[in-house]
Amino acid sequence: MAEDVAALMKHLGIEKADFTGYSLGAGVALQIAIRHPDLIHKIVVISAPVKQSGWYPEVLDLMAQMGPDTAKSIKQTQLYQFYPDTDWEALFTKLGDLVRQDFDWSKEITAIKSPVMIVFADADSVRMAHIMEFFAQFGGGQRDVGLDRALRPQAQLAILPGTTHYDILSFPMLAAIITRFLDSPMPEGM
């Protein structure tokens, strides 16, 4: 998917962009930053781990079971009503194959030079210990940044209260938090 986005940007003549992704889409945004750092201005990763083991075990169990039978449960949702012509069985089969793949991008993300914001729910499907490990890979949470903020990492972390992986996008202040990050000046030398 990252390669598709890069090709589309080239086709449209877009040299650089900010990327925001949620869950699977956040993984795509991370892959764009890893594979095509020249296309990234800033990146916002919402509710996605940097490695497969970042998910809680029960989430991994659900991913292991994802397939055509999962499509039956979608018929009672608004999503199904919005997209009635979707082949849900084929979609969940492909998604199941994708989400069962083991991954660990820990080393690759350390090469990301663009400003990064990672956003999680306080009751996310991603383990809190993993969230802190993820933030630490960008230098966050390692020390006091000082009164002058000189030691502040370029990465930012937001933990949204009263939210879960499944409702984080409806948090009333999410858009304002992301906009503030995207509108802030680029660090010197970028």
Rank of each mutant, 00 (worst) to 15 (best):
Y83R: 02
L169N: 02
L174Q: 12
E89K: 10
V28G: 00
Q78G: 13
D61W: 05
I168M: 04
S47C: 07
G21T: 03
Q156N: 13
D61P: 04
P37G: 14
L30P: 00
T164G: 00
M9Q: 06
M66Q: 12
T110K: 13
M128H: 08
I131N: 09
A71S: 12
L39R: 15
D167W: 08
L151M: 12
H130R: 05
I46P: 01
I112R: 00
Q81V: 02
A33Y: 02
R152I: 01
A2M: 01
L151H: 09
I74A: 07
A64N: 08
H11T: 09
F92G: 03
Q31S: 06
P185G: 11
V28C: 03
H41Q: 14
S125G: 09
M66R: 15
V59E: 06
D38E: 15
L39G: 04
T86L: 11
S73P: 00
L147Y: 08
G141Q: 14
T163Q: 14
Q52G: 05
L24V: 06
M173H: 15
L39E: 13
I177Y: 05
V145Q: 03
Y166K: 05
I159R: 03
L151Y: 07
T20N: 01
K16V: 15
G146A: 10
A176V: 11
D38W: 12
H130Y: 06
V5W: 13
D18V: 06
A90L: 06
V145M: 08
Y166D: 13
A136E: 10
P187I: 09
Q142C: 14
F134D: 10
A90I: 04
F92I: 07
Q52K: 10
D87F: 08
Y56E: 09
L95K: 02
L157F: 13
A136C: 05
S106Q: 09
D104F: 07
P185E: 06
E133M: 04
A33E: 09
Q137I: 05
K10D: 15
M128D: 01
V145D: 12
W105S: 09
I177S: 04
T20K: 00
F19I: 00
V59Q: 02
G140H: 14
A71W: 07
A6D: 10
A7E: 14
A48C: 06
G146Y: 05
V28P: 01
Q101D: 01
M9I: 06
L147D: 11
I177L: 08
R143K: 15
Y56L: 14
P115H: 00
P185W: 11
F120V: 07
S170I: 15
I46L: 11
K94M: 10
D167S: 04
M9N: 04
L157K: 14
A2F: 07
M1C: 03
Q78T: 07
P84I: 09
D4I: 12
W88M: 02
D148I: 05
Q137L: 14
Q76L: 10
V116K: 04
E15N: 08
K94N: 02
P153T: 10
V126C: 08
L62R: 13
M132D: 06
T77Y: 12
T70H: 11
I46W: 07
T110L: 12
H11G: 03
A17F: 09
G25L: 00
I109L: 04
A136G: 13
E15G: 04
P115D: 06
A2Y: 10
P115K: 03
L79H: 06
V145A: 10
I74Q: 04
G189Q: 12
F135G: 08
G141Y: 10
P84M: 09
T86M: 14
D167N: 15
A71L: 06
P187T: 04
